[in-house]
Design a protein around this nucleic acid. Structure first.
Length: 872
RNA sequence: AGGCUCGUAGCUCAGUGGGAGAGCGCCUCUCUGACGCAGAGGAGGUCGGCGGUUCGAGACCGCCCGAGCCUACCA
């Protein structure tokens, strides 16, 4: 074995083996308890970023854990057709060839996009495999597969039949670049500096940030109880303006805030969501002056053809010239921008399909309230309720070509609308020609069906029967509304049951400055680079260790390096074990009585095992990773392996040697199984070199903590040994005595039990602390020696000729100071009568014990210091 | 505007009512026979601030300051 772990070849090799052997496959016919996760389908345009790496590492940890634990684990993989993003990519390709999608026509464009998907859409799947994802790849799904498309149609038709779907003219968020409608969720908001223009409207003045929309004004509005303007209510005013004299009616509406600006607003139903509502309430005309291209249209008269923002400047100039601008104030407000291309969204009225969400939301709220769905961490439930309770209808049509085309047909002859599971050609009413709706459905519409469409719905399949509802959904909190909430609504609606029992929402990964990673900022950390540099296992372990955090993970590469070192540590521990096994005979080992160190490490392993299990069950991946790290490095490697060297190299008892070999192998093997969900590759690589049962660690049982291994007395005794070794090392370190110098240590135990223990473990202490040990309950302090107390045992280290005794004086003074701080603290606590009266008795007793202990230590240290002084 | 989250060692973060922790970084020593991607030792913290509850608060409550996120029809 090499002295360093090299991940590159092991990873590729094992993944190929696993895949070929079909270890990832789940069988719906298996009688084992089902455990199912459906992957949040990545976009086909995507390539693996840190968010995917985190999300999928967590899922793989869960799936591998459950699979090892004997459950029928199914992880369904797939990709998402990502309407806007994919169409954008192909349009850009066309543009490079000097063509537009219109040049190709719809059919050819869609064909071309399919071709692009076949060629480039699989990148992220290969990258997930690189990450070690143990998905059942035979079940790879795509949102536009025939089966899933059928599900989309079925849902659309049934919603229509039940009146949960409607088509209407509404003000929507329009992206003038993407040329499509956006749902509220797809609009981001950004605080921007702007100007607030105070414009004279006849006898009134009003404030606006969008003077260009004044051309579309169809009324003025004030608050109904605003006395200042009561006399104008219902009147129509003649107003001189840039377009000449215009006539405006003054209406009263609750939506107007009398305290803002002048308390008067201009109403532009065609270009402002609030105004649209006001317009509806008062039957106002919708006068559109900005086109879907973001330019002023013919109704804008002299301004026609100008870009909306250019027009703003021009109108302000013209108003100023006419003396109609009263003042301009600097103003900050939030602007809606397209989440894809960051273009400022234009509210526009158009005909769209909507889902009535209120009836769907009610059961979705109940599912969480009743505990049928558990959201982890808990804090997100509140956010979920708030959104669900204030839910608004969902516009689902998108003006794109790439996606599920809306299954609605219009008859121009009789004006009827037909929604159908099968394609229609002739009008069922009049036999006239039909034209299919041009739009496609929001990508999230098909994603919302993912947990059941991937399992075969609307067909009834063994998979659905077995795995629905799925067990857990793992995703980022940023798509709680986009995706999670909608899956819950549609799952309940069409399956009659929740889509999953647990939702684990993880944090978002940012850079060390807390900035979101983005190509524009150039602060992207590519998980593939990290895997190249440090190995997949190191990256996975890092992500698990960071997963416990709140909303952000500030990601620094040095953390990955640290866990690469951890992988190497495991590798070398295994190397140590394997290199000491040539003569190992398990049959002989069974006869050996375990020594203290053996009992101790087995007990620690049992503790680590239950910690890991508990942490995984609670989705506390950081705790699980921490427990593993602590155990492997600071218990197994730091102490047990070092202790093993004594019996392996220096003991003359063959039985002791075999027994140590047995412990080493057993602990290592179990540790590898514990590590496997986190570090699949290195664990398999080492496990295969050990004696093992079964073809792969993937299917070996996940360790259970055996209560017979929990050994309180071994832990207590080993704590004494460790404390003494550490104390002696401390003296060596503080006194600057080189490690090569063998010290002498005189141990003076205070009880017969301790005496027996120390006599039995003298050789171990000796080896670990590099010193010659004498155990003597009646020992007198040797002259010119350092002294310390650990676990009640006095320990003298003669320093004659080794160091300047002044250094020891200082060291002792430092220790005394520490002890005195403790004493003062404990005394203060115990002097408090209320503490003694009200605190639980065991707490009081513990503190009393500590106080006497610290006092004893202080006295001994003082005596030591005094002797040193007089020794001079 | 409302809601939520966070403020603990130089950095990144654990710590969900009883003796302030980890990783990295830093300082000293070590070429010890698994590992220098290592070993041993060490320095470093008024737990954002102020009040309150409690025998006891980094943890619970209130207010304040600071950072961030989400929701909203602030023209």
């Amino acid at each position: 074995m090499a002295d360093r772990y090299d991940p590159t070849q092991a990873e590729e090799r094992w993944y190929r083996v696993w895949l070929a052997a079909g270890f990832f496959r789940a069988d719906p016919a298996s009688p084992k308890k089902p455990y199912c996760i459906v992957i949040p389908p990545p976009n086909i345009t995507g390539s693996l970023h840190m968010g995917h790496a985190l999300d999928n590492t967590i899922q793989d940890i869960l799936i591998r854990w459950k699979r090892m634990d004997g459950e029928n684990a199914l992880w369904v993989p797939g990709t998402d057709h990502a309407g806007i993003a994919t169409q954008y990519v192909v349009e850009r390709q066309l543009a490079a060839e000097g063509k537009s999608k219109e040049d190709l026509g719809r059919e050819a464009f869609v064909a071309r996009t399919w071709k692009w998907k076949e060629e480039s859409g699989g990148t992220i799947i290969r990258q997930l495999q690189r990450l070690g994802a143990s998905c059942d790849w035979d079940r790879l799904r795509f949102t536009m597969d025939p089966g899933l498309s059928r599900a989309v149609r079925e849902v659309f038709v049934r919603l229509w039949e039940e009146g949960l779907l409607y088509r209407g003219d509404y003000i929507v968020n329009w992206c003038t670049r993407c040329q499509t409608v956006l749902s509220d969720l797809e609009v981001e908001h950004e605080e921007r500096d702007a100007q607030l223009f105070y414009i004279r409207y006849g006898p009134l003045t009003l404030a606006t940030v969008r003077p260009e929309t004044k051309l579309g004004d169809t009324a003025l509005a004030v608050h109904p109880r605003d006395r200042r303007y009561a006399k104008y209510l219902g009147k129509t005013l003649e107003i001189p303006s840039v377009e000449g004299t215009i006539r405006m009616k003054v209406v009263a509406d609750q939506a107007v805030d009398p305290k803002f600006g002048t308390g008067v607003v201009k109403v532009t139903p065609a270009h402002d969501p609030a105004d649209f509502e006001i317009g509806r309430r008062h039957g106002l005309e919708v006068r559109q002056v900005i086109g879907f291209d973001g330019k002023m249209n013919a109704r804008a008269g002299q301004y026609a053809g100008l870009d909306r923002f250019e027009c703003r400047g021009r109108i302000v100039e013209d108003l100023e010239r006419l003396g109609l601008i009263e003042k301009i104030e600097p103003y900050q407000h939030s602007v809606g921008i397209c989440y894809r291309c960051k273009t400022v969204v234009e509210p526009l009225v158009s005909t769209q399909w909507f889902v009535r969400t209120k009836p769907l939301a009610a059961p979705a709220i109940k599912a969480v309230r009743s505990g049928k769905i558990k959201i982890i961490p808990r804090g997100w439930t509140k956010t979920y309720y708030h959104w669900m309770e204030n839910i608004r209808d969902w516009p689902i049509s998108r003006q794109l070509w790439w996606g599920h085309r809306i299954p609605a047909w219009y008859c121009d002859r009789d004006g009827t609308v037909h929604v159908s599971r099968t394609d229609l050609v002739r009008c069922p009413e009049c036999g006239g020609p039909l034209r299919q709706d041009d739009d496609v459905l929001d990508t999230w519409f098909s994603s919302a069906l993912w947990p059941f469409s991937t399992l075969g719905w609307p067909k009834s399949t063994p998979e659905l029967e077995r795995f629905y509802p799925t067990s857990c959904l793992v995703t980022g909190f940023d798509i709680l509304f986009f995706w999670v909430a909608r899956m819950v609504m549609l799952g309940l609606k069409f399956m009659g049951d929740v889509p999953f029992h647990d939702v684990y929402l993880h944090a978002l990964i940012r850079d060390l400055e807390g900035q979101k990673m983005s190509k524009v900022k150039g602060n992207i950390i590519d998980p593939l680079d990290l895997m190249d540099a440090y190995g997949t296992d190191a990256l996975r372990f890092t992500l698990a260790a960071l997963a416990g955090q709140g909303r952000d993970i500030r990601f620094g590469e040095d953390r990955v390096e640290a866990y690469r070192n951890f992988a190497n540590k495991i590798w070398n521990a295994a190397r140590f074990v394997l290199s000491n096994l040539e003569d190992y005979n398990p049959a002989v080992a069974r006869a050996g009585e375990p020594a203290l160190a053996d009992r101790w490490i087995l007990s620690r392993l049992a503790t680590a095992t239950s910690k890991v299990r508990k942490a995984l069950a609670a989705y506390r991946f950081n705790d699980a990773a921490g427990a593993l790290y602590q155990f492997v490095w600071h218990e197994f490697c730091d102490w047990y392996v070092e202790a093993a060297k004594l019996t392996l190299y220096r003991s003359d008892s063959p039985l002791a040697r075999t027994r140590t070999q047995k412990t080493l192998v057993e602990v290592l093997e179990a540790t590898l199984r514990l590590l496997h969900p986190f570090m699949p590759f290195i664990s398999e690589e080492i496990w295969q070199r050990l004696r093992h049962q079964g073809p792969t660690i993937m299917l070996a049982p996940f360790p259970k903590a055996r209560s017979k291994d929990l050994d309180r007395s071994a832990e207590r005794d080993m704590a004494v040994v460790i404390a003494l070794v550490t104390a002696i090392r401390n003296i060596r370190g503080e006194m600057r005595i080189p490690p090569a110098t063998t010290l002498r240590a005189v141990l003076k135990p205070a009880t017969p039990r301790a005496t027996r223990l120390l006599k039995a473990q003298a050789a171990l202490i000796q080896a670990l602390a590099r010193c010659d040990v004498t155990v003597d309950p009646r020992a007198a302090r040797p002259a010119a020696s350092a002294m310390t107390i650990a676990e009640g045992v006095e320990c003298f280290v003669p320093l004659e000729g080794l160091v300047d005794l002044e250094a020891e004086r200082q060291r002792l003074a430092k220790e005394i100071k520490k002890v005195e701080e403790q004493i003062a603290f404990l005394q203060g606590k115990l002097r408090n009568r209320e503490f003694k009266a009200k605190a639980p008795r065991d707490v009081v007793e513990r503190e009393k014990g500590r106080l006497t202990e610290q006092r004893t230590i202080r006295e001994k240290l003082r005596v030591s210091l005094g002797r040193l002084g007089s020794a001079r």
